[in-house]
């Protein structure tokens, strides 16, 4: 994806992660800004389904050639699906960060946490 984009239907964590909430399940990934800052992603190890993640804590790592970055959980819960296709084609995180480059689906344990996330406008403002 060549140009910056922050879809309005997502919620954002200030550590450059996004969440798309559907009922008690959230799909999560990293933002356009994060993948752009890292450069071409060459390695991503999808976390195990069943792992419990905690808001603001790292749950995975993404690696480019010369950088490695923690991926921070925007919300707490249990991983119910992990995008294992990324193990073979991590470049999808660069090409389509909000689509094919999604990382995990989480069954949320605390719906109130969403209140601490930012909307697209507020997140974009933090990048300036």
């Amino acid at each position: 994806m060549a140009d910056a984009s922050y879809p309005d239907d997502l919620l954002y964590h200030h550590e450059h992660d996004w969440a798309r909430i559907d009922g008690d399940v959230a799909t999560c990934g990293i933002t356009w800004f994060a993948q752009e800052a890292l450069g071409e992603i060459v390695f991503y190890e999808p976390p195990q389904v069943g792992t419990t993640i905690v808001q603001d804590q790292p749950y995975a790592e993404v690696e480019s050639v010369k950088a490695v970055s923690d991926v921070i959980a925007p919300l707490s819960g249990e991983i119910i699906e992990s995008n294992t296709a990324l193990a073979d084609s991590p470049e999808a995180i660069n090409d389509d960060p909000y689509g094919a480059g999604w990382l995990i689906k989480v069954r949320l344990s605390d719906q109130s946490e969403r209140d601490s996330l930012l909307d697209a406008a507020a997140y974009s403002a933090t990048l300036e």
Binding site: E63, S64, V65, K66, V68
Partner: peptide, 12 residues
């Protein structure tokens, strides 16, 4: 595979 190494991953 330099992300294993000290100059990038530092304490990890």
């Amino acid at each position: 595979l330099q992300t294993r190494e000290q100059h990038i991953r530092r304490e990890k």
